[in-house]
Amino acid sequence: MALVGNIRDFGLSDFLYLVDRGYKTGGLHLKHNDETAILFFERGKLILASRKDEDRKGELLVRLGVLSAEQLSSVMQQMQQRGNGVTLTQVLLDSQLLPAEKLQSTLQTHNEESVYGLFGWPEGEFRFEQGQKPATDSPVMPVPVPVENLIMEGVRRIDEWGRIKDRIPSTDMVVKFIDQPGEKAKGVKLAPEEWRVFARINGRDTLAEIAQKTNLGDFDTCRIVYGFLTAGLVEVLKKPKPAPLTSSARGAQVTEPPRLKKSLVNRIINRIRGM
């Protein structure tokens, strides 16, 4: 069953998150006015992205300058001879016409740029065909690429409050790290401003407080946290109501952090010893 919708309602970053978390394999077809795109995923990772039909053929490698037309022709002949569903990428790697790293980096750059451009689409229909694989003669990346960085980069290009507000309705909400970021958080690269926000996340401060402390505006702070949220690094919660003050605590300096107690340090020591 295909998943269909519109990225106006379910953003591309949200869809990538779904593909990633669900370890989806398949083809995501997108259409905006007269533009189309297709992204192929294998177990949640990107293996091919194209904005033009001709980019899904071996000729792309000639256009990108990593193969000559003669080399491509020879590779295509080998493909036909070997048959049995052997892929262009497999034949290329076996023939050692170009190093695997070169093939990977060239295709990865091309694919990533193709995806980044899609984040600028304000709307567009999508259809995800589960299990669909690219044609064997498509220039598939040898190593599938995790989508977290695509999400982060995509979110950097979001400039609408509306989409962010869907997930972060108020700046009075508190941001905390999720307990088990797991595999999903690996390899995410942060820009300095994102990093500043990341370092301020403590499970207590609201988005408004983080915005104030980082000197970033509410919008930029929310946009950055939206990126973390979409990439599965953090969760955003309503700020808990403060507990009623006990008589002994009444009048205490609530903003002043308590000095560290020996008992607390000993608890940490005992825990580390027992690990």
Binding site: G182, K186, G187
Partner: peptide, 9 residues
């Protein structure tokens, strides 16, 4: 030492 998969950027 971390109990979670380390978030490494």
């Amino acid at each position: 030492i971390s109990e979670i998969e380390v978030v490494s950027t």
